[in-house]
Lab assay of single mutants.
Amino acid sequence: SEEEIREAFRVFDKDGNGYISAADLRHVMTNLGEKLTDEEVDEMIREADIDGDGQVNYEDFVQMMTA
């Protein structure tokens, strides 16, 4: 549901600035027990970053979650 997606976005957007940065993503993945290299984190950001601004905004996140 849209509310679940919004809630998930809030979990990833640690600093609440409306964007998921590589640092935000790394933090959440580490908490989930996933040890990722910087390259892996950057690749995840690139794949999710639809508009190419280097971070994942809510619209990018929705597209990723509903793809």
Rank of each mutant, 00 (worst) to 15 (best):
39 E>P: 05
28 V>M: 03
14 K>E: 09
35 K>T: 09
63 Q>F: 09
2 E>N: 09
1 S>E: 05
37 T>L: 08
44 M>H: 04
39 E>R: 12
45 I>W: 06
43 E>H: 15
29 M>E: 00
50 I>C: 06
30 T>V: 12
43 E>R: 15
53 D>V: 09
24 D>M: 05
66 T>V: 12
64 M>S: 06
49 D>S: 12
6 R>V: 04
15 D>W: 06
8 A>S: 05
7 E>F: 03
67 A>D: 11
47 E>P: 03
5 I>G: 00
16 G>L: 08
6 R>W: 06
56 V>I: 13
11 V>W: 07
1 S>R: 13
28 V>K: 00
48 A>L: 15
19 Y>E: 02
63 Q>I: 08
18 G>C: 02
39 E>H: 10
45 I>S: 02
61 F>Q: 00
44 M>K: 04
54 G>N: 06
27 H>S: 07
7 E>A: 11
4 E>V: 09
57 N>W: 15
53 D>Y: 12
58 Y>M: 05
65 M>R: 03
42 D>G: 07
37 T>P: 06
13 D>H: 00
41 V>L: 14
65 M>W: 05
49 D>G: 15
25 L>K: 00
61 F>N: 00
50 I>N: 07
33 G>H: 11
12 F>R: 03
25 L>D: 00
53 D>C: 08
54 G>A: 05
35 K>Q: 09
23 A>Q: 14
4 E>M: 12
62 V>Q: 02
5 I>S: 01
20 I>C: 03
26 R>V: 09
48 A>V: 09
1 S>H: 12
15 D>P: 02
41 V>Y: 13
22 A>E: 08
37 T>D: 05
51 D>T: 12
44 M>Y: 06
49 D>K: 15
57 N>M: 10
61 F>M: 07
38 D>F: 07
7 E>I: 04
53 D>R: 11
67 A>I: 07
22 A>L: 15
51 D>H: 13
58 Y>N: 00
20 I>S: 00
67 A>L: 04
36 L>W: 14
34 E>Q: 14
59 E>A: 05
18 G>D: 01
42 D>L: 12
60 D>W: 15
23 A>R: 09
21 S>V: 03
11 V>I: 10
30 T>L: 14
17 N>M: 08
40 E>W: 12
27 H>E: 10
6 R>F: 05
47 E>I: 15
26 R>A: 05
54 G>C: 09
58 Y>K: 01
31 N>K: 14
63 Q>M: 09
4 E>R: 13
11 V>E: 14
63 Q>C: 08
21 S>H: 06
45 I>A: 05
12 F>G: 01
44 M>R: 05
31 N>C: 10
63 Q>A: 08
42 D>F: 08
50 I>G: 08
17 N>C: 05
34 E>T: 15
30 T>I: 11
12 F>I: 04
59 E>N: 12
30 T>R: 15
27 H>C: 06
60 D>M: 15
42 D>V: 06
47 E>K: 15
40 E>A: 12
28 V>Q: 01
8 A>T: 03
23 A>E: 13
63 Q>W: 05
50 I>H: 11
57 N>E: 06
5 I>Y: 09
44 M>T: 02
52 G>T: 10
55 Q>N: 14
3 E>I: 10
40 E>S: 06
1 S>M: 10
38 D>V: 11
53 D>I: 11
61 F>G: 00
61 F>S: 00
36 L>C: 08
22 A>W: 08
51 D>P: 06
13 D>G: 00
2 E>I: 14
4 E>I: 10
50 I>M: 12
37 T>H: 05
45 I>K: 02
8 A>R: 10
43 E>G: 11
66 T>S: 09
66 T>R: 08
26 R>Y: 06
21 S>Q: 06
45 I>T: 04
45 I>Y: 05
35 K>V: 10
62 V>F: 07
45 I>L: 13
52 G>V: 14
46 R>T: 06
46 R>K: 13
33 G>I: 11
45 I>M: 13
39 E>V: 08
11 V>T: 09
53 D>N: 13
48 A>Y: 10
59 E>G: 05
44 M>Q: 02
35 K>G: 12
44 M>P: 00
40 E>Y: 08
34 E>W: 15
61 F>T: 01
46 R>C: 06
47 E>G: 15
16 G>Q: 07
58 Y>T: 02
24 D>E: 08
42 D>Q: 11
16 G>I: 02
35 K>I: 11
59 E>K: 06
30 T>H: 13
14 K>P: 13
29 M>Q: 01
55 Q>L: 13
62 V>Y: 06
25 L>M: 05
47 E>L: 15
65 M>I: 11
52 G>R: 12
5 I>C: 04
15 D>H: 06
13 D>P: 00
21 S>G: 04
46 R>Q: 08
13 D>V: 01
29 M>W: 03
14 K>T: 11
22 A>N: 07
67 A>Y: 02
47 E>S: 15
55 Q>E: 06
25 L>Q: 00
38 D>R: 12
22 A>K: 13
51 D>Q: 10
51 D>L: 09
41 V>Q: 03
34 E>A: 15
66 T>D: 04
26 R>M: 03
11 V>L: 10
10 R>H: 11
33 G>F: 15
5 I>H: 03
19 Y>F: 11
48 A>I: 12
30 T>E: 13
60 D>N: 14
27 H>F: 11
5 I>K: 02
34 E>S: 15
27 H>A: 09
65 M>D: 01
51 D>E: 08
50 I>V: 13
57 N>T: 08
27 H>G: 05
53 D>T: 14
12 F>L: 06
22 A>V: 15
56 V>L: 08
17 N>E: 04
20 I>R: 00
23 A>Y: 03
59 E>S: 06
62 V>E: 02
42 D>A: 12
18 G>H: 02
6 R>Q: 03
4 E>Q: 12
